[in-house]
Design a protein around this nucleic acid. Sequence first.
RNA 1: GGAGGGGUUCCCGAGUGGCCAAAGGGGGCAGACUGUAAAUCUGUUGUCUACGACUUCGAAGGUUCGAAUCCUUCUCCCUCCA
Length: 376
Amino acid sequence: MYQLLKEDGMAKRAVLHTVHGDIQTPVFMNVGTAAAIKGAVSTRDLKEVKCQVQLSNTYHLHVRPGDETVRKLGGLHRFMNWDRPILTDSGGFQVFSLSDLRKIKEEGVYFSSHVDGRKIFMGPEESMQIQSNLGSTIAMAFDECPPHPATREYVVDSVDRTTRWLERCKVEMKRLNEQEETINRHQMLFGINQGGTFEDIRARHAETISEMDLDGYAIGGLAVGETHDEMYRILDNVVPYLPRNKPTYLMGVGTPENILEAVERGVDFFDCVYPTRNGRHGHVYTNNGKMNMLNAKYQYDDRPIEEGCGCEACRDHSRAYIRHLLKAKEMLGMRLAVLHNLYFYNTMMEEIRGAIEKGEFKEYKSRKLAGMIDKG
RNA sequence: GGAGGGGUUCCCGAGUGGCCAAAGGGGGCAGACUGUAAAUCUGUUGUCUACGACUUCGAAGGUUCGAAUCCUUCUCCCUCCA
């Protein structure tokens, strides 16, 4: 159940009650694609870094270790030792990211596994079955994330198919949740809006899926190469067509700035690989902007990444030391950078929630952005 | 003492007369990354009054229109046999 607690302009402060506990929104979901946050981050670390929800991936877990394996081991929560909510992405993004390794048909998508090349068929039913086997808190509809740029004809075809797939997802999810042996019989299903950069297609699709009474609504197919302005324009245009009394999830986004802009436009669920991937690559986020810890200027810098930050990296170590670890390719360097970034993101979301509660989101956003732009 | 092999740009290491400022790694420096095929990928890495010039391949001298590449001497290192 989703409860809207407070509104500040378009910005929403809400709570989503789930069988695995409450999610306070706006929230950033920490991405652990293959049932692990890359960078040697444990579930203990995740709790310390204030992670509310983890995101895992249907396609990747189906390929390895196999969703049947996870089901036999009691589901993803038990497998990973994570008792808070998990959202599983459907495999729809892999239709985009593994575009050289797949064929799209009406019935679904034929992949050749990126691991060993074997044929894998995934349609809406298969995606729901896999996610049911994983037992995640929230399942995502199986969609196609179209490339950018794409022609209008391509996008129309793709979105129509995604709608038909969504209907099939809904039927299959209902069936699975009614079965006795299902691990999580309260698994939620979020639908995904598509339409590329075509506002009218986006809006019409949003209206169509809004009538389907799903547990939440995502906006997909953004941050795939379009400009930030285009992305914001689409949010302006689409969010109003999605139900306000349901979660609004902007998939795969984004930078701290992207998130602030999207919250202002009514989005309250996010996920992105940036904090983890950038951390592994030596980039860390601070209130003064992004830093590349690999840069020579930090060689003798004895300060923490960010003064006053409560994360393990900042409490215990200097920039110089973390730079050394990263340069030496010591695992600890990546781990500390990732922990810092996740802490930064999750803390920012906490601040956002506080600001909305006080009705001061706009001020908070300007302050935050000014800091990051000034010294970035 | 005898026989042989070798010293290349920060490092390792190709290159045996012109297409060589010199392959390829590494290291350095910088950049990219948005529902993760990513501990990945890209650029750059002699100097300058830079679409041209200058200095460089152990040192010095020589052959040649032209040398990192051929010759002479010197020097240093390594291996094997005594």
